[in-house]
Write a protein that binds this DNA or RNA. Structure first.
Lengths: 244, 244
DNA sequence: CGCCAAAGTTAGTTTATCCTAACTTATTAT
DNA sequence: ATAATAAGTTAGGATAAACTAACTTTGGCG
């Protein structure tokens, strides 16, 4: 009785008859989830861009995914995940992020290399393995880049954060999350100590998309607005703002 | 300059131009290696049986593998791995066995479930991951079933052992290795403490393929010759034979 | 309100892997 | 030595996922 009517289903509930989605299918679902936050309609061209595929390939695949009930699709109108598709996407996302957290926490992988490895392992690891990995590192709530890990039941914190580029001069904030798919950028952010948990104060922002001056860990440094927009932060109340 | 003329090549040297073999190709090479100990010629039907495929599928695949230089093939005459193919097979075997050992040693996987998980992960894990796993559990020489792990450089202990079925009554032996692909059998062997490292004495063997009486861990038990043939042992000299 | 660019789709191929059915080669037993 | 059987192959087809090239919708702008 897989994935019955409604109620308490776990992510392990199989989304197709034989309980297995192919790697490419999981990648499509993940991309669609990421682009549409799980509910908004998503343009096929955006999927193609995200997955680095020709748009025509996406048209073909989304038709098949719709036939399998993983998403709903109207020609020329974009695509929306069904409940089943969303659950499958979240399961893959959980696998991906647990694997990242495990590689980092248990095998000393540097944070700029966990993404690519997880991208392959997420399609091969069983739920049991993923759950054991999560247990072994204390059931973390986020991956090494600060992205929230969906629970076994398929819930995920969807809080939206401000980017560092949107923070006004003079404000303090704690880094919550950075985008995870550019290893070079991650190494650079790591050098600057701009990592989840760090406290940051925006000292000044030059006009016309100019450099942003920050204090991180007592050090003053400057970054461009492009990089700053990749860093999600939670503003600090004055009470807990770091001294300056 | 990948895998040049000869000399010190590591298993990481790519066997095809773009450095990646597909999952099915790795499975064929592993099967051919297992059936031919890496050098003997192997019958296509045996490959088909081992991989649970139709014989015709194997004919098609071995032709392609021969074109890629992974094996040499003469129609109706069976198949032999080339040096490149053997190295690729050993790399997959190393991945498989390191992963098994890691799952067992670091994540408390029961030994009857590591095989299936490793069967999928071996195609997705990078060399770096496999090497980190091996390091994390102290570079073990064997997997949880006692199978030797090829070194990073592609060397593997090929010692042949006696099976428990071939051991004469009255002899003592240490279990070296058991076959790894039947979870139910592994659970049973585990219950009986017939695991690598255990010391065993053959008390008696009933004639006509009858049951074999053993002392394991001070307990006397009987097993059939079919099961006994799946257990590889190293006879003990009398000096170190366990008391009886 | 009709036209054009952008977005999206269909048509037709390609590659990898598998299948079944029918055929060929090799081996073995009389 | 040959005929039956076992082993292995070719032929032809299916499916999944990708591509390029050519076509169709959509939606915004003058």
């Amino acid at each position: 009785m897989k994935g019955g009517k409604r109620g308490h289903l776990s992510l392990a509930d199989a989304p197709d008859e034989d309980g297995h989605l192919t790697g490419p299918v999981e990648d499509y679902l993940k991309a669609i989830y990421a682009l549409g936050r799980g509910s908004v309609s998503v343009a096929t061209n955006d999927i193609a861009q995200k997955l680095d595929l020709a748009p025509a390939s996406v048209s073909g695949m989304v038709r098949r995914l719709a036939d399998q009930g993983l998403l709903s699709y109207e020609r020329y109108r974009g695509v929306t995940l069904t409940d089943v598709g969303r659950r499958a996407a979240l399961r893959t996302l959980r696998r991906h992020r647990v694997i990242e957290a495990y590689l980092s926490g248990a095998l000393q992988y540097p944070w700029d290399r966990v993404h690519d490895e997880a991208e392959r392992l997420e399609h091969a690891a069983s739920d049991e393995l993923v759950n054991r990995m999560a247990a072994a590192i204390g059931e973390p709530a986020t991956d090494p880049h600060g992205a929230p890990i969906p629970s076994r039941e398929g819930h995920m914190d969807e809080t939206e954060y401000l980017s560092l580029a949107d923070l006004g001069a003079g404000y303090g904030a704690r880094v919550v999350r950075v985008s995870d798919d550019d290893p070079e950028m991650l190494r650079y952010l790591g050098e600057l100590q701009i990592i989840p948990g760090s406290e940051i104060v925006v000292i000044s922002k030059a006009p016309y998309e100019g450099p942003i001056a920050l204090r991180v860990d007592g050090t003053v440094l400057q970054i461009g607005p492009g990089l700053a927009s990749q860093v999600m932060v939670e503003p600090l109340t004055d009470m807990e703002a770091p001294a300056h």
